[in-house]
Amino acid sequence: MSVPSVPISKDIDPRNQEEDYVHSVYNDIATHFSQTRYKPWPIVEKFLKTREDYSTGIDVGCGNGKYLGVNKKLYIIGTDRSDGLISCAHDISKGAYNLGVADGLNLPHPEGTFDFAISIAVIHHFATEERRSEAIAHIVSKLKTGGELLIYCWALEQENSRRGYKEGDEQDILIPWVLQKKQPRKPKTRKNRKKSGNEVCKEEEDAEKETEIETPDESPVKESETKYRYYHLYKQGELAANALSTGTCTILEEGYEKDNWWIIVKKI
């Protein structure tokens, strides 16, 4: 039995919406979420492995850092809005990853510096189209001219997935994450999340099959708690339109992979 997604109210302030339905949720679910995020997406892996040797990049919204070690001939700094997830990344890599806690609209990097950037399953969390486009423009501003950015966002068109969203459905929705409290040392409140994170963030060899948004939906055990994350589900062509609206890049490649739209843009 799975918990259904629900539409989000239209009159929430964008910043409050991101705080309540993105930032605080990821901190609450960080440890559990991190255990389900270990396998790189093929397109992302290919992008990273085809970068020039010893080039530099940023991973905006790096989560538990699963892309930071894909190509050891690169310098990548990963940032995420969730300090809980960044703690997971630090622990998983035993201090080898380059990490920081930062907001995607206020990145702490010099302009025009990096050869490439990735932002995987992040832009769809911004509450308005204006903020989603602004986020893309902000990442592009950190690239050198000619630098490339790969973006992944969840697609509206996923009729074959378990959730079955399709063209014509509501695009702005709340997706449930069921936290089962029988798991040991669950971060329960914002106050204790760091401690819990440090204790149990580790990669699991045998975690469930990776699908981008996985809500564990075994039958609910007692005391499970449902957290909702906000997503904007992207329609075909919409991601490229957002990128082009910034006036700072061209589209190099675009495609669809496993319920997600992706694009590679080049800074002009």
């Binding site: 910043r15 940032t79 809005r81 300090d83 960044i86 703690s87 630090h90 201090g95 990490l99 920081g100 806690v101 930062a102 907001d103 609209l105 206020n106 990145l107 702490p108 440090n198």
Partner: peptide, 18 residues
Amino acid sequence: VYHIKNSIPNFLLPPHLC
């Protein structure tokens, strides 16, 4: 002023500076 704790630098800004 930004802080580094447990080897992790934190660049989050207070709301009035965002």
